[in-house]
Every structure is written in structure tokens, then in C-alpha cells.
Amino acid sequence: MSTAKREALYRSRQLNWRKEARLLPGYALLILWVIFTTILIGWVAAASLSTTRAIYRGEVFDFAKNGLNFGNYVKGWNSQNVSVFFMNSLGYASVSTVLLVLVAAPAAYVLSRFKFFLNHPIQNGFVVAMGVPVVMIILPLFAVVTQLQLLKQTYTIRLLMVVLYVGINVPYTTIFLLSFFSNLPRSYEEAAAIDGCPPMRTFWKIMLPLAQPGIVTVSIFNFINIWNEYFMSLIFANQDATRPVAVGLYSMINSMKYTGDWAGMFASVMILFMPTFILYLFLSEKIIAGVTGAGVKG
């Protein structure tokens, strides 16, 4: 690095007070927004560890007086099936996320690498599908599923939910991974072919591992989306044993409103909030990259 460049870098690292002053209104707005978000989540988190009486008195942050009532969580978790809902969500989200990679990655690879006459129509079809609202597909799906008698038994419902979540997210996942594969140089495959590795083996052994960063990003994104999905599970997972946490807690939150167990209700909200929040704490950069990635081209 030249001296001039180093000097410029040094200067840019230094606090430039005039520049910072000009940015002050921007900072103010951002900080206000951050404060509000923090209060919103912080208060609910505090209330979930508090007692209903303390919530009424407006002293949820007074932990010295009211103690940390983890009992709200324990009570919620043990009663009313929350543990079942939670495990269902975890199962749906993780199994679907893995299957999505297995289905979408090969499709994306083939679409990015080979010329054949249906290539572009398929890609366009997937892009259009990304914009199809659920209302356009829900009624026939329900009709077919009922005709096949899939809504009678717990395991068929579970299977169905996974298939639906995989199917719904295949277009987005494929398009996302497609642009990822296009950016990998072809020299890898050429080298593998010269060494006598058949193309399918090359994909599983070489190309898929190379696409790992993209796969991780799209998987976190899929996991969160499936965890938070509401409408389809409301309609299809119509037994307590198969409900995911969002739908299960909706009815629970409603009933707790009437029984007046506010601390318990806020604890339920936190149980729903925590898993995606923890993922976000560690992986926010990856998740943000997923939003601005292939799915949405300007």
C-alpha cells in the first residue's frame, strides 16, 4: 500500500466531526427507531418474567421486587401442548429445509449449466410462482388433500405439511441457488471430467460443497419462513397434535386473554419469538444477504 493510500485510509478512520454533525438528523432518527424496537421487545421480555399483578401496577422492570418468574415459561411449556406445538414447528421447519436443498439444488444446478429448450420457460415459471399469492392455490390443494383422506391421521398431516412447505418454497430456493451456481467457474467441472468423474458425481462431490455459502443462507431463510408460516398450517394442520407453534399459540394467547394470565401470555409470545430471534442474533448478516440476494433483483 502506498503512503498516500495509507494516509487516506487513516483519515477516513478518524472521526470527522463536521461530517458526523451533518449526519446528526439521520443518527437521531435511527436511534429513535432502535429505542422503540428495544422497548417493544424488552418490555414484553420483562413482562414474560414478571407477574400479572406487576404488569397491572406498571412495574415489570422491577425485578428486585417481583423476582424472575421463569415459572411462566415452565407453566406455558408444560400445559396446553406448547411443547408439542414447538416440536412440530421444529420438525416441519428443519425437515422441509433439508429436503428443499435436496430438491432445489440439483434443479438449480442443471438450470444454470445446461442448455435445453425448456430451460428458460421453467425459470420464468419459477419466478412467476414466487409472486403467486396463497389464496390462488389453497382451495384446490384442500380439495385434493381431503379427497386423498390425508387430514385424518397425525402422520399423514405431518407428511403433508412438509410436502407443502417444500413445494411452496421450491421456486424461491431454486432461483436463489441458480444465480449462485452461475457464478461458480466451469473449470471445476472441466477438471473433474478430465479426471473421469461423471457429471452427477461431480455435482454432489464438488459443486454442492462449493455452493455451501448460498445453501446456508437460503436454508436459514427457509427455516424462518416456515417457522413463521401461518395460513396453510391453520387450514391443514387441524389437530392439536400437528399444530405448529404460531397457530397453537394464537388460540392459547386468545384464551389467556380471557383467563387474565397476562404474564403467562407474554411468556407464550416469547416462546414463539425466541427461536428465530436467536438465529437472527448469530446470523443476521446471512439473513440480510438472503433478502437482497438472488430472490429480488432490481
Binding site: 435436496l102 438450470l111 415459471g125 421456486p171 461423471p198 455435482f203
Partner: peptide
């Protein structure tokens, strides 16, 4: 060999695409 690969790799995604999007949209 490439053609077989294209077919094998695309079939699951396309089947789901038709089952979850194309057929339901047409039927709606």
C-alpha cells in the same frame, strides 16, 4: 449422459411445481 442428468435433477422440483402451483392455479 447429460440428458439423463437434466431429467433426474429437474423431476422432483418440477413435480412439486406442478402439484403445488400449476394444477391448483388452473383449478382455482
Amino acid at each position: 449422459q447429460n440428458r439423463t442428468m437434466v431429467v433426474i435433477f429437474l423431476t422432483p422440483a418440477l413435480l412439486l411445481f406442478f402439484a403445488i402451483f400449476v394444477y391448483p392455479i388452473a383449478r382455482t
